[in-house]
Design a protein around this nucleic acid. Structure first.
Lengths: 349, 349
DNA sequence: CCGTATAGTGTAAGCGCTTACACCAACGAG
DNA sequence: CTCGTTGGTGTAAGCGCTTACACTATACGG
């Protein structure tokens, strides 16, 4: 079924059919109806590749994320997709698994498909790519990386403030031995959280002892991280996780070892994913407004009635959400194997 | 940057560049290098729309799911995507939110994009669509719906058996009042689980009392369902959920009401999503091999060294996975408000 | 009546790519 | 020396669509 078939059936030219389908130009009402009927009868649907090639209305935007499995990214995607659909757009999504190389090929794929806008919501970065995208005049939204320009909108979350609040909150609760569990700590936005953790901890040194480990993103990674900490001899009264997704695994490991949260150990996450309030104990975390981020991306990439607006830099604040997984440090757990507290800040890769 | 630019730079024709890029036909080694260098220098990447239009190698497959948020679908997608990437394919994903109308437009979108294969992993069905797809000669995989044909592979999970095992297992544990929580119960594959629940329960009647409610897919839906049951006066000793994703919410509601799982009430899920073993208590559920499903889809849609093989019907068995959320029915909870057990099998929409 | 808008439609030139076919050179067999 | 073969390359015809432009018919003021 091609445009030509429809044209033949409706006894008009392909140009007219195209005009009807795209709702542009002047077409007689009766002709519109004839065409629509032919479309129905033939069950015609347009070849989007041809349409895009020919420079037609390009109603698709792309979104690249690091890990779709992590509800954080998924939520942003879902919000964006809903907004996009509402405006007649489709969104193509690609996953990088935190691999810069995959980022490169995903971007190529998106550009090759001719998206009309691209959201890059990843933690890994590729300076050359960012530059290239900046130099093009494709509307792009970078999350966490890059800098604003005419066609570039930049969304930055203030992780440092969020992390600082978490550490101070825990310190205020009497916690003096904290462990940090992260993943891909070489990636800047992620190492930011860890760095902040360490910096804030340093302020309170030497009263505050810390340790950091790294694993893979996700519950399993979190569980591994928790194991590593628990078997290290360092006995934290609080475990700070780089995100909620990993904290889920930490909670599980504690449960399996009959370590009570928060009575024996406090646990915190970051992101405030939906699941955070559905686990037991519900997770204390820093809220990142993912829906707002999704909407902002949509706004930046999908032209509205008044165009699309210049690229700009948007700062997002986080908010501490206290739930059940944190409590004052127990004096009980402090005494356990006090001997081993001598060892400090072990860095893992 | 077009093929022509590359051709000019490498001083060959576009045909030769195309041959190099697609690795077909005979091209002199030195020419290949010249072309590749030009590609590098110009940072050329192909316009995939043009490529597909021209009938080039079409290395994308589509996948349509009901709810990407539900880890069940996400896992299938992730496996498929990994397989696809390994073979140089991309996968386009679309979400229907259980809406048949969205299914229709998603299919059109996929066909319009010219995917070389399509996986329809949804719970809703549209007979006309299924027929249409069957009549095309596009390789298609249907999950749960449709029937096998030359180009159609059909994957069916034996929900009935799985559900039967769950109910019998619970009955064996002494549970005599069970509630079922589902969603979109008008959709066949979903109503199947509920119907089976009811049928098995009927076998044990009148000793077994049941009640069913429906809500939205997801933890929040599960929580709502649990609330409805708990406030109804019907005091189940076991709550059977249509899937794990909803069971998460049930667990939460129990936790908030200080109802102990499994001491006071047993809870079961279905699917065995990764999270099932990361919540507390870990969920007893029926395992559906999502990775296997993902691989099967890849096999059916992505031509391997020996072609792609005929469409066929594949039956998948589930396996009961007992974890922490189920235990023998407590006699304590049986006595509570015994008066209200009179009411039965309330059907919710 | 003519000139000139204007509504409505058709013609045809691409968009960037693949590929059938044509072509040429080089080479071994007869 | 000629002919078929084969390796290597170019030419050009589309793929299905959009859209600039051309065109016709009708209306309307002068």
């Amino acid at each position: 079924m091609t445009l030509e078939d429809v044209a033949r059936r409706a006894k008009v030219s392909t140009a007219t059919v195209s005009r009807v389908l795209n709702n542009v130009g002047q077409v007689k009402h009766t002709t519109v109806e004839r065409v629509m009927q032919a479309v129905e009868e033939l069950k015609y649907y347009p070849n989007l590749n041809a349409r895009m090639l020919a420079g037609g209305p390009n109603r698709t935007i792309g979104m690249i994320v690091s890990n779709l499995e992590n509800p954080f990214f998924l939520d942003v995607f879902r919000t964006l997709e809903a907004d996009a659909h509402r405006r007649g757009y489709d969104v193509l999504v690609a996953n990088t698994d935190y691999r810069p190389q995959q980022l490169v090929s995903s971007v190529k794929m998106m550009l090759g498909r001719g998206v009309s806008g691209l959201a890059v919501v990843v933690s890994e970065k590729k300076p050359s790519l960012i530059r290239e995208l900046s130099d093009s005049n494709l509307p792009v939204v970078f999350y966490d990386v890059g800098a604003a320009k005419a066609n570039i909108t930049n969304i930055k979350v203030d992780y440092r403030m969020g992390m600082q609040r978490i550490v101070e909150y825990l310190y205020g609760l009497g916690h003096r031995r904290m462990a940090f569990i992260g993943h891909h700590t070489t990636l800047e936005p992620l190492s930011d959280r860890k760095a902040t953790f360490l910096e804030v901890a340093a302020e309170y040194a030497p009263r505050l002892k810390v340790m950091t480990v790294a694993s893979a993103d996700g519950p399993i990674g979190g569980q591994n991280g928790a194991r590593e900490i628990l078997t290290s001899g360092f006995r934290p009264t609080a475990v700070v996780c780089v995100n909620d997704f990993m904290a889920l695994g930490v909670l599980r490991e504690m449960h399996e070892r009959r370590i009570r949260v928060p009575e024996d150990v406090s646990v915190t996450g970051f992101d405030n994913i939906g699941l955070a309030e559905f686990v037991s104990p519900a997770l204390t975390t820093a809220h990142i407004p993912r829906e707002e981020i999704g909407h902002l991306i949509g706004e930046a990439l999908i032209p509205g009635p008044r165009g699309r607006g210049e690229g700009r830099e948007i700062r997002i604040e986080t908010a501490l959400v206290v739930r059940e997984s944190t409590a004052p440090a127990s004096t009980r757990s402090t005494r356990s194997r006090a001997a081993s507290t001598g060892q400090r800040a072990k860095k893992a890769s």
